[in-house]
Design a protein around this nucleic acid. Structure first.
Lengths: 212, 212
DNA sequence: CTTCATTTCTGACTATAGTCAGTTTATAGC
DNA sequence: GCTATAAACTGACTATAGTCAGAAATGAAG
């Protein structure tokens, strides 16, 4: 590109690539990645294709996302947050705790089922945050999930719908661990959705010390 | 290697590469891989190095292991099985269930702590068996762990040390899910071993419905 | 406008897991 | 031994995530 300096002012459109600001660029990257991931799947999409679709260089892509996996989380993070928020918000107040938990987890499960790569990578991100990079910060999502679960447990306790003494946060972790175990077993293709829900219900019941 | 046919009978040692049978080759591969993984770590070892150390072609390596990750499991599977067996075998008969569970999980945890890559990939293998390949069959390991846990629960129930009604296998899964969650959180570097054990104890107690 | 420093961008390049068409060896039947 | 078929092996090759040295843009100060 040794000639760029001379050519640029003659051939390029009046509004070049560079004056678009970072915000716009990020938006284009995320939008391009979303479309490609949806159309072709994660593994079948190359970072080159994403860069090309976003009209940037390959190197630039990695200034906005630390890795391809980071990009996946970046693309779907907001949707996941929205899914979790909605799930918690649409719970009936006085319902049995087990039903509430199941509703929340099934909503998240069904979301993840659409993209197994996302679920897998999200687990990795949760467990090994530095493995993917910090640009896709999912602490907000985790706060919503763990906070929401802990709240449900604390509330149920107040209302006398749940009596055990363990810390709500530990119970929330326990529930989440079992949710993820069930989800991944399902995504692994070993069992049907129905069986998964049935097992999940049993696991949740065990955790909150409730007979089925 | 167009000259191999002529040269082989003159230069090569009386016993060439080819007559060594598959068993020996596999042993050499696993041995070479183990040494390299231990010395340099998983990520820093290339499949080329392993092939070279085992004195085979790069392509041949992938006839014996479907992937590099498969190879890692292949290398450490027997040790893991031994660790789990020993952990279950060395339990006192009448001990409280919670103590028994904690002993087993701590033994496995300490084994995995030596190699975080192994733990991570093993989780993947458990959840997505086809992603890595089937040559490293870990069903024996899983049978030992889940069967062992279910047995402990069933026995404790008979002896009146544990009273809940859920299926032992579901309880075992629940316990395992929480073990893995704790293990990975630990390996993720967020908390100390002490904190991990403390949390694990709480999670196990929640699952078996026991106050601490 | 002209430096100069800083930020942003770039694509040729590197590194390596895994493949595959072609080669060699083993086995079986004669 | 000889031929034919199958099994095992090989390494040059492919594909692609991520890097990095340098180019281009931006902004500040004069």
């Amino acid at each position: 590109m040794g000639t760029t300096r001379l050519v640029a002012n003659q051939n390029a459109p009046a509004v070049g690539r560079r004056e678009r600001n970072k915000q716009e660029k990020l938006a284009r990257i995320v939008s391009a990645a979303r479309e490609l991931f949806r159309d072709r799947g994660f593994a079948e999409t190359t970072t080159q294709q994403i860069a090309e679709a976003a009209d940037i260089g390959t190197g630039t892509l990695f200034l906005y996302a630390r890795s391809k996996e980071d990009l996946l989380v970046l693309v779907f993070r907001d949707e996941m947050i929205e899914t979790a928020r909605t799930a918690f918000a649409s719970l009936g107040e006085g319902e049995p705790l087990l039903d509430q938990l199941l509703q929340v987890f099934i909503a998240m499960m069904d979301y993840h089922q659409r993209d197994t790569d996302l679920a897998r990578i999200l687990l990795k991100e949760i467990m090994f945050p530095d493995a993917i990079g910090r640009q896709s910060d999912i602490s907000e999502l985790l706060d919503i999930i763990f906070g929401g679960l802990a709240d449900l447990i604390a509330k149920a306790r107040k209302d006398g719908r749940y009596g055990q003494g363990a810390e709500p946060m530990r119970v929330a972790e326990n529930l989440f661990a079992n949710y993820y175990f069930s989800l991944l077993t399902w995504l692994g293709g070993r069992i049907t959705r129905e069986q998964t829900v049935s097992r999940l219900r049993q696991h949740l019941a065990i955790t909150i010390g409730q007979a089925l």
